[in-house]
Design a protein around this nucleic acid. Structure first.
Length: 306
DNA sequence: TAAGATAAGAGGGACAT
DNA sequence: ATGTCAGTCTTATCTTA
């Protein structure tokens, strides 16, 4: 789903035509195609008006229920007074029952270490979401994964920030939101390898089935940072599709692959782009581009022979 | 200056010990 | 559990056009 973001102007063309892709969480300009993949996600309440005319007083009943709140926004406390609804004192047997319930009620909330951990982690997740533009459902998924990790006691002895960052990365992978490990690492101020380690742990222990990152999607992401013509993009996508068919792409970094396909396409179409520009936009090194480029070019010549 | 080549090193998976 | 191996990616440096 795509939503219009009113009052936001494109940084490149200045038109008031920014849209938000609800799936990837990216904002892009409907006029010129510019994509703001970093930051600037609106993080205010997602309230809207429930009036038919779309009036200006957003309202809803109660707080939003969300996995990203440690008790899912449903906190209640059993009244400490031993009175019933009409104000009469409780009977002795009922009283002891309520005492017991009260104990469990409070234990189920933020008092146990596990819950304090969860609170802290979700606090960090909230900070992260402002730095990495992501949609609400990815956020929910990240919170869900982290809860699972807590259940399995995977967090013990590991840093909370790394784990929550890994959960977020996993959520991005799962929802096919193109975010690299580096994107998350930069936002979380955690070393890439630490997040990678935690992610692997999550992946392994929770038996998450992750779709393989589609390098074709990466094309869009890279080319939006540069100014790439539609024709060049098409060609690059075609190159990648061929590469995928030949399973030439297995085990390679999808970003690097996409970057070099784009580079190949630029060369073929006579567009002058330096390897460095593409490397920077894709977040890989020039060497990686060259290596992949070699492979892709070899394939090109092979294909021409057939 | 951009592109290519080369080397060294990191980190992790597969497999054997 | 630990070590080795092939493969990938990164960083750094040097050469070439």
């Amino acid at each position: 789903m795509v939503l219009l973001q009113p009052n936001s102007n494109c940084l490149r063309c200045g038109k008031n035509s920014l849209l938000t892709d609800e799936v990837t969480g990216e904002q892009f300009c409907a006029k010129c195609g510019y994509v703001l993949s970093e930051k600037s996600q609106e993080s205010g309440p997602e309230w809207r008006s429930f009036q038919k005319d779309g009036g200006s007083d957003p309202a809803r009943t109660g707080a939003p229920s969300s996995l990203t709140i440690h008790d899912m926004g449903l906190s209640t406390v059993i009244n400490p007074l031993n009175k019933d609804a009409s104000g009469k004192p409780l009977s002795t047997s009922m009283r002891s029952t309520i005492e017991r319930l009260r104990t469990w009620d409070s234990r189920s909330q933020a008092h146990e270490p596990v819950d304090r951990n969860l609170r802290q982690a979700l606090g960090e997740l909230n900070k992260l979401k402002d730095k990495v533009a992501i949609s609400a459902n990815v956020l929910e998924k990240a919170a869900y994964i982290y809860r699972k990790a807590l259940e399995k006691k995977l967090v013990r002895g590991r840093s909370i920030s790394a784990m929550i960052a890994a959960s977020l990365y996993a959520a991005c992978r799962d929802t096919e939101t193109p975010r690299t490990l580096k994107d998350v690492a930069d936002a979380a101020n955690v070393k890439r390898k630490d997040i990678a380690r935690c992610y692997r742990l999550l992946h392994h222990e929770l038996e998450l089935k992750m779709p393989v990152v589609d390098s074709i999607q990466c094309i869009a992401r890279i080319s939006s940072k540069l100014e790439i013509t539609e024709k060049t993009k098409r060609y690059a996508i075609k190159v990648l599709q061929d590469a995928q068919k030949r399973e030439e792409s297995a085990g390679k970094d999808p970003m690097g692959l996409a970057a070099s396909a784009l580079y190949l396409s630029c060369v073929k179409n006579g567009v002058s782009v330096t390897q460095r520009d593409i490397a920077e936009a894709a977040g890989v090194t020039e060497v990686t581009i060259r290596n992949r480029y070699k492979g892709l070019k070899a394939e090109e010549t092979l294909k021409l022979k057939i």
